[in-house]
Amino acid sequence: MGSTATGELPTAQEPVRVIEGESLAALREVPSGCVDAVLTAPPYSSGGFTRADRQRDVSVKYQQTGTRRQYPTFSGDARDQRAFGYWCALWLSECLRASKPGAVCGVFTDWRQLGETTNALQAGGWVYRGIVVWHKPGARPIQGRFCSECEYLVWGTNGPRPLSGSPFPGFYSVPVRQRDKHHLTGKPTDLMRALVKVCPPGGLILDCFAGSGTTGVAAALEGRRCLLIEREAPYAQMCRERAAQVIAPAN
């Protein structure tokens, strides 16, 4: 599967398309009012309390000691909190413009950036609806402290959203398994398969920080379409390859 021009949207025959490029610039070329749901995990700019901590290579910040598998690096993860919030508000406002009325937006974050992410969602024009907890069983215990074994999906809507359809859980407990991890901060396919169901069948999901493309894989498996944006070339290629593996058997 090759890259697509920003104006070309996924189709039923080609349900996952990849834009290789910087997210904010690419988002400005996405047509208005075409997206049913936004599900994405921007670089958290986390992994430390000080500027020096945040400036460390992502492989140091996010890869556990003793992990044998090496992942391609990625950029854009060293903003301070004020810059992170302002930047998020910019791309979230573009996601709002590209979304249909009532569309859902879900943004992953960790505990350090949780408050700033809720602010940025609202600054981007979305109606803030709450926080979904993703529990990661098997997190490393730290003596005398609570375990950091949860991440969060801050979610909102593009204006009012009709009260219809089945409810969704506010808590998901899904482990990270090495055979299913393709990115330093990758999310489990099973988790994303559950979350993409917030989009109606056949609808369009936007992931503007696609990483290894798990949102696209999950969308294709669950009968949704997905537009992926990824600026790092190795990961953009991974998105294409993983999507092709899922789509080819179905065709």
Rank of each mutant, 00 (worst) to 15 (best):
A83V: 11
L228I: 02
G186C: 09
A233Q: 11
V58C: 15
L227T: 06
G203C: 10
V107M: 06
F171N: 08
S3I: 14
G106P: 04
Q70Y: 08
Q143N: 09
Y128C: 04
R231I: 14
G170F: 07
S212D: 07
R145C: 05
R140Y: 10
R145F: 12
V176K: 13
M192C: 14
L195G: 04
L227N: 05
A25R: 12
V133C: 07
G76Y: 03
G47Y: 00
E14F: 07
R28Q: 15
Q55R: 15
P167W: 01
V60K: 14
L9T: 06
E29G: 15
S59Q: 14
A210E: 08
A26S: 15
T118N: 01
T117K: 00
A52M: 13
Q122K: 14
F84H: 14
G115K: 10
V104I: 14
V154E: 04
V133I: 12
Q113V: 09
Y71K: 06
V133P: 02
G202C: 12
S148Q: 13
F108H: 13
Q13M: 11
G130W: 01
P141H: 03
A243F: 00
M1N: 04
Q81D: 15
M1S: 09
A210R: 09
C88M: 15
P141L: 04
A12C: 07
W87D: 12
P234C: 05
A37E: 04
P249M: 00
C95L: 08
Q63F: 04
A52V: 12
P15R: 02
T214I: 10
Q178A: 14
K100F: 10
Q13G: 15
K187A: 01
K197I: 08
E94Y: 11
R193A: 08
V104Q: 06
V104M: 12
F168P: 02
T215L: 09
Y71S: 05
S166D: 12
W134M: 05
P234F: 02
R224Q: 06
